[in-house]
Computed example of a mutant assay.
Amino acid sequence: MFFVRTASERDLEKVRALLVETWHATYDSFYGVDKVDKLTARWHSVDALRARLQKKNAEFVVADNGREIAGMGFAAMSDTRPKTVILHQLYVLPKFQRQGIGRDMFAELETCFPDADRMRLEVEPENLHALAFYRAHGFSEVGTTPNCGDEQSGIPALILEKHLVR
């Protein structure tokens, strides 16, 4: 059984490995191995993860069973949108998907921001599993972006949003 807890410095190497594996399993067919390697090196380095861990008004969680980490999630209050939390990452290792781990991490992240009235995220339009997950959890499409994650990514994404009930 996996428990959702706040991530710590000692988790960062395992989280990095989880993200690299999950990203290759999910995105190689969309972007190719080389682009995924470049993105994971930039976005999922231990230093990048450490910066997320130290970010104010944010929550970084892992799903842990005492032996391994099966999933991770990161959300933070928006710097530009009032009362909006941005779900930046929610990933589960492929071998543990469809076991409720993503649901449990999402439920935890949803409750960590009492001042937020909405949650927003970006998702690859071709990632049908992620789209189905987010739609099942109350998200709907509110826009698009040509650069998911950062202004240089060149990765188009749908922008989804959910109103948080308090």
Rank of each mutant, 00 (worst) to 15 (best):
5 R>N: 13
6 T>Y: 03
6 T>C: 09
7 A>L: 05
8 S>R: 10
11 D>I: 07
12 L>G: 07
12 L>C: 04
13 E>V: 11
13 E>S: 13
15 V>Q: 00
15 V>A: 01
15 V>Y: 01
17 A>Y: 02
18 L>W: 02
20 V>L: 08
21 E>P: 02
22 T>G: 00
23 W>L: 10
23 W>M: 07
24 H>R: 12
25 A>P: 10
25 A>H: 15
25 A>V: 09
26 T>C: 09
26 T>L: 06
27 Y>D: 12
28 D>E: 13
29 S>W: 08
30 F>R: 02
31 Y>S: 07
31 Y>P: 11
32 G>P: 15
33 V>Y: 06
33 V>G: 01
36 V>E: 07
36 V>G: 06
37 D>Q: 11
38 K>A: 15
39 L>V: 15
40 T>F: 04
41 A>H: 12
42 R>V: 02
44 H>L: 00
44 H>A: 05
45 S>Q: 08
46 V>H: 02
46 V>M: 00
49 L>Q: 03
49 L>S: 08
50 R>L: 10
51 A>C: 06
51 A>M: 08
52 R>S: 15
52 R>F: 05
52 R>I: 03
53 L>P: 10
53 L>Y: 04
54 Q>D: 07
55 K>F: 05
55 K>W: 06
56 K>G: 10
56 K>P: 15
60 F>I: 03
60 F>M: 08
62 V>S: 02
63 A>G: 11
64 D>E: 07
66 G>T: 02
66 G>H: 05
67 R>P: 05
67 R>H: 12
68 E>V: 11
68 E>C: 14
69 I>E: 03
71 G>D: 02
71 G>V: 00
71 G>C: 06
73 G>F: 00
75 A>R: 00
78 S>G: 09
79 D>I: 11
80 T>D: 13
81 R>P: 01
82 P>L: 07
83 K>A: 13
84 T>H: 09
84 T>P: 14
85 V>H: 01
85 V>A: 05
86 I>G: 02
87 L>M: 08
92 V>S: 03
92 V>M: 00
97 Q>W: 03
98 R>K: 15
98 R>M: 11
98 R>L: 09
99 Q>L: 15
99 Q>I: 08
102 G>I: 09
102 G>Y: 10
104 D>S: 14
105 M>T: 04
105 M>V: 14
106 F>C: 04
108 E>N: 07
109 L>M: 08
114 P>Q: 04
115 D>C: 07
116 A>V: 11
117 D>C: 14
118 R>P: 10
119 M>N: 05
120 R>Q: 13
121 L>K: 03
121 L>E: 07
122 E>T: 12
122 E>H: 04
123 V>I: 11
124 E>N: 15
125 P>M: 04
125 P>T: 06
126 E>L: 13
126 E>W: 12
127 N>H: 07
128 L>W: 09
129 H>V: 15
134 Y>H: 11
136 A>H: 15
